[in-house]
Design a protein around this nucleic acid. Sequence first.
DNA 1: CGAATATATCCCTATATCGGAATATGTCAA
DNA 2: TTGACATATTCCGATATAGGGATATATTCG
Lengths: 131, 131
Amino acid sequence: MARSPTTSDAFAAIAEPRRREILGVLAGSDGERDVTWLVEELGWPQPQVSKHLSVLREVGLVRVVRKGRRRMYSMNGEELRPVYDWVKTYERFWNHQLQRLKERAERMEREAKRKGPPSSHQTPPVNPDSN
Amino acid sequence: MARSPTTSDAFAAIAEPRRREILGVLAGSDGERDVTWLVEELGWPQPQVSKHLSVLREVGLVRVVRKGRRRMYSMNGEELRPVYDWVKTYERFWNHQLQRLKERAERMEREAKRKGPPSSHQTPPVNPDSN
DNA sequence: CGAATATATCCCTATATCGGAATATGTCAA
DNA sequence: TTGACATATTCCGATATAGGGATATATTCG
């Protein structure tokens, strides 16, 4: 087997920087855009733009409607949601400061209610099967 | 030129589902994990696990420390932040319902304050994803 | 030292990419 | 119809992957 096709997934499709760039300009410009407009905006050869658009199309990240001899592309960002949901799972890794503050605050609150002495307890094992 | 190497980017590295799976089990288990543990947990041949770990290592998504003859891997989620930040800029695409509600609420509030008649105004064209 | 354990690396094959260049397809206009 | 314009597709070459299998490198133990 080889690498997974770029068209298998939103994850695979956005692995290519140029494709992200296309999405960027498409989302930045309100509404629909011409291929020619994209070509001029990006400054790449037209076939390249078309090929990348083809990948994005196949994954559903962009939509097309034919308008005369032009094809109007627009972004379909909802297809990025799986990526968002996945990466959001790891939010705690860069929010740990905030999270620690929050946990500490909650701990203090609980202890204040109980009127017990403050415990110098480590962060409780969120995930138990630590060895 | 060929496709961008999987080691060029967090984007490229997580394009492979197996790599996401590794991150999943690593993040799920608190702290550090053995390669052998990963092999048993995932049920893949050991060289595959090692090879994927190598990619993740090179991108900085995991960290290793040698402990005797074992190598303890742990997740370094901060490296996912660029992905998060990028995808977050498209949040409005799946939050538009929420956003419309919010905008409508704010509009009503403003109008109530002014005691003017309710305007049947369309959402201001932040993003005209009107079809 | 020699054996066992833990992990990484090497070799191989099939596959798919990306870019470049040329060309095909489709549509409007005179 | 002929030609101009807009876009997609095809062919090419270089590259790199992912998985399979074998093996190399370390490290601990007896």
